[in-house]
Simulated scan of single mutants.
Amino acid sequence: MSAPRRGGLLVALVTVLILGSGAFAHAGDYGGKEDGKGDVIVDGTETTETTTGGIGGTRIFVPGPWTQRVLVPYCPANLVRATGRGMREYEMDDDMCMGAVSTCPDPEDRRWWVFERPMNADNVATEDGFSRGGVVCRGAADPSEAEPPTITVEQIMDQARARAPRPTFVIEPAAKSYVNVPTNFAAQVAPATVNVELLGFTIPVEFTPGDATWRFGDGGSDTGVGVRNASVGQSGAVEHVYARSGDYDVSVTVGYDVRIIVPTGDPITLPTPISRAAAPQSLTVGEVQSVVTGVD
C-alpha cells in the first residue's frame, strides 16, 4: 500500500530564525551506514543560576546544504518519490515484509532502506529525485526523516553560561568598618559579549548588567549597583550601618539581560535575566572606644 507523505509539514512548526550559511551535521542524520545514528550532542556546562524563560527549546533553523534522508521498510517494492517542485515534499511506499522485520541483530529493530537527496540552504532539492543511500537497523518508533539542521536557544545558553561575566565589588573605605558608621558598597560590572561556537557558527551573546541585590551578612539587604567613593547619603550609593561588632560575609548578585545575536535575523532576547553572584567578601566591624584624657 502506498502512503503519501508531505515531508515539509514539520517546517511550519519550527520557529525559523536565519543564522547564516554553512554546512552542518544535524540530528537524525542516518549516515547511510548500518546502525548509524549520527545524532548531534551538545554538552552544556554550568546550568545553574539561570533560566531561559520558557524559550530554551525554541529551534533556530541553520540554513546550509544538507541531506534529506527518508527511511522506508526494507522491502523490494518500497520507494520514495520526490514531489512538490523540488521542495521537501515526497511520497513513499511503506509496505512491510519479512526482510524488514527479521533481519536485524536486535529483534526489536527493523531494517530500513535509506533514501536521500541533497538540499540547498532554501530547502530546495538540488537533484530531481531520491537515491538509495544505504540500509540501517533502527527501532520502529525512531524518526523516519532527517530534519533540516537546527540548534536551540538552550544549546546556545549551555555554552554561554560558562563564559558569562561574574561581578566583583568593593567595600569602602576598607574591609574594616565600625558600629554605627555608614559603610559604602559598589558592584563592579560592565556589559560583555561572549562568543559561542556551535555547529560551525560563531554566535555572539550579549550580557548587560541590571539590578544588583546585596546581602550584608547581618540580615540586612539592599538593591542597586552603588557608587564608588560615594559621599554619605549620595544618590545611587549603597550604604549599610552595622549595629553590632563582628565579622560579616557580604555578597552581591547581579541580574544580566541576555541577547543572542542572530547574524542575518532579529536578535533573541531572553525574557528573564541571568543571575550571577560575586565571590563573597568578609567585613570586620569593630567598635569605636572614646577615652577621656583630661578635663579643662
Results as ranks from 00 to 15, higher is better:
residue 135 V to S: 11
residue 224 G to I: 00
residue 36 G to N: 13
residue 179 V to L: 03
residue 31 G to R: 08
residue 5 R to Y: 11
residue 257 D to S: 15
residue 35 D to V: 00
residue 113 W to G: 01
residue 120 N to I: 12
residue 123 N to G: 01
residue 186 A to T: 13
residue 181 V to I: 13
residue 126 T to R: 15
residue 149 P to R: 04
residue 237 A to I: 01
residue 34 E to N: 04
residue 53 G to P: 12
residue 111 R to Q: 10
residue 59 R to V: 00
residue 196 V to I: 07
residue 269 T to Q: 15
residue 271 P to W: 04
residue 192 A to L: 13
residue 232 V to R: 14
residue 28 G to Y: 09
residue 270 L to E: 01
residue 279 A to M: 08
residue 254 V to T: 07
residue 178 Y to C: 04
residue 236 G to N: 11
residue 264 T to H: 03
residue 243 A to N: 12
residue 200 G to K: 14
residue 120 N to R: 14
residue 35 D to A: 06
residue 152 T to V: 09
residue 240 H to T: 02
residue 80 V to Q: 06
residue 202 T to R: 15
residue 285 V to D: 06
residue 134 G to E: 02
residue 203 I to P: 05
residue 159 Q to V: 02
residue 48 T to S: 12
residue 127 E to C: 03
residue 227 V to K: 06
residue 150 T to W: 02
residue 197 E to P: 05
residue 101 V to L: 15
residue 227 V to E: 03
residue 85 R to T: 03
residue 215 R to I: 02
residue 157 M to C: 04
residue 138 R to T: 00
residue 212 A to K: 13
residue 187 A to I: 05
residue 179 V to N: 00
residue 56 G to W: 07
residue 82 A to L: 08
residue 117 R to N: 02
residue 15 T to S: 15
residue 106 D to C: 04
residue 160 A to Q: 08
residue 24 F to P: 00
residue 270 L to M: 08
residue 289 Q to K: 15
residue 2 S to H: 10
residue 264 T to Q: 14
residue 256 Y to K: 13
residue 23 A to E: 11
residue 239 E to T: 14
residue 246 G to A: 07
residue 82 A to T: 05
residue 41 I to Y: 13
residue 262 V to N: 07
residue 201 F to P: 01
residue 248 Y to W: 13
residue 14 V to W: 07
residue 55 I to Q: 02
residue 242 Y to W: 11
residue 159 Q to M: 07
residue 114 V to G: 08
residue 56 G to N: 06
residue 98 M to H: 06
residue 288 V to A: 13
residue 83 T to E: 14
residue 70 V to F: 01
residue 290 S to E: 09
residue 235 S to N: 04
residue 290 S to A: 11
residue 58 T to K: 12
residue 159 Q to E: 01
residue 19 L to V: 10
residue 203 I to S: 09
residue 256 Y to W: 13
residue 292 V to L: 15
residue 209 P to V: 09
residue 74 Y to D: 09
residue 51 T to G: 13
residue 197 E to I: 06
residue 173 P to S: 03
residue 81 R to G: 00
residue 154 E to R: 15
residue 290 S to I: 11
residue 89 E to K: 03
residue 13 L to A: 11
residue 286 G to F: 01
residue 73 P to K: 12
residue 239 E to D: 03
residue 234 Q to S: 09
residue 230 A to P: 02
residue 226 G to I: 09
residue 1 M to C: 07
residue 114 V to F: 04
residue 196 V to T: 10
residue 137 C to Q: 05
residue 128 D to F: 00
residue 62 V to D: 01
residue 224 G to D: 00
residue 84 G to D: 07
residue 170 V to T: 14
residue 261 I to K: 12
residue 186 A to R: 11
residue 71 L to I: 02
residue 145 E to S: 15
residue 212 A to W: 11
residue 233 G to W: 12
residue 54 G to H: 08
residue 149 P to T: 04
residue 39 D to E: 14
residue 243 A to M: 09
residue 186 A to C: 10
residue 223 T to N: 06
residue 55 I to V: 12
residue 35 D to T: 02
residue 203 I to A: 10
residue 228 R to V: 11
residue 32 G to Y: 10
residue 32 G to R: 12
residue 138 R to L: 12
residue 267 P to M: 09
residue 238 V to R: 00
residue 78 N to F: 12
residue 101 V to F: 12
residue 57 G to Q: 13
residue 155 Q to S: 05
residue 164 A to H: 06
residue 213 T to G: 05
